[in-house]
Design a protein around this nucleic acid. Structure first.
Lengths: 195, 195
DNA sequence: GTCTATAATTCGATAGAC
DNA sequence: GTCTATCGAATTATAGAC
């Protein structure tokens, strides 16, 4: 890559580049190894910097994790699709999110064994999926339960496909996953309560 | 408890009791902390024995884990219920299994960050759920995919309810979980392929 | 069978030179 | 901003006395 379009490498910008390199490496390690086995030393080595820089920038390991897994699910606006298409829209969107980077895998792996990770997961799904559920489900009072049910299926697929790597779950084509899961998520969010 | 019905505490039986005490403590710790943070020292302390005994009996930490998470899902015989009730039967059975002891929670927590744990999880669901899927699904060739889809929903619920502890997922009554999830699992196992 | 002592690593975090 | 050196703590695992 030419530098012709880049800003000049002032110390401030160099620091910026170092920071993002650290976060990229941290996401990879947390996603691959979980919180405990993702060491600051290994992350620094991946980012080609000194371990002490990680501490300087993020204070401690928890601070690094918090910065590395900040994420916006970028859920589609319910106004952008028909109400009976919310299941398909959500499953499609989540598959793309899981495969475009490693933040969600890191969150899931860490959330399974780390209190702070689980809390972060609760926050993200509570604050970002719940509002959408409130707008599409029949009774707003049921929105939390319906959002949790939809989460259980979406996260369950991610667990078997990207973390545990069940061979048949990995082998499914994206369209097949959508075809199977969309009706489930649709029902959890919009169908009448099953007695 | 009176000892009147117990066998005499010969050295052999004493050793047996120590072994089960170790495994019980190990399951608890693995379920609560995951593989890395569940230390042999802590497990030994819980079991009121010396850490070196754990090594003596199980060789190393991996051997202890393998012994602690051996489990039979005890899936119901497909002959014992109607074909259109397999979803309800499976969800009901799994809820009971998850809540009766901590083996599955330990497996899920460890499987998320540990290769051996993930492999164990693949083995259990592949060898125990797959045969049942083969007997109830329309085309045996689709059995692996259908078993994986059913696993994704069952494990996803366990993840949100017992590991990540999403408040709405925890709050759901058992019967509500069954009412919502049974149709999903039923469809994954027996409905025609959704084109 | 049970326990003490300890070897051999590894990690997060800090201090301080340049 | 960057790096070297290192501390203090914790871990698995082993050797060997009793």
């Amino acid at each position: 890559m030419s530098q012709s379009q880049s800003k000049p490498p002032t110390p401030a910008r160099r620091s910026e580049a170092t920071r993002t390199a650290i976060l990229d490496a941290a996401r990879e390690r947390f996603a691959a190894d979980g919180y405990e086995r993702a060491t600051i030393r290994a992350i620094a080595k991946d980012a080609n910097i000194d371990p002490s820089m990680v501490m300087r920038y993020y204070g401690n390991k928890e601070g690094l994790f918090a910065a590395a897994v900040a994420i916006d699910l970028k859920l589609p606006d319910p106004a952008s699709f028909q109400r009976d298409e919310v299941g398909r829209a959500l499953v499609t969107h989540f598959l793309a999110m899981w495969e475009e980077n490693e933040v969600l895998t890191a969150l899931l792996r860490v959330g399974a064994t780390n209190q702070a990770g689980a809390e972060r997961m609760r926050g993200i799904f509570g604050e970002q999926l719940l509002p959408l559920a409130r707008r599409v489900c029949p009774d707003p009072e049921q929105a939390p339960a319906r959002a949790a049910l939809a989460s259980s299926q979406l996260l369950g697929l991610a667990l078997t496909r990207y973390v545990l790597r069940f061979p048949p779950a990995v082998a499914l084509a994206r369209e097949e996953v959508v075809a199977w899961l969309a009706p489930t998520v649709q029902r959890y969010l919009t169908a009448p309560h099953p007695a």
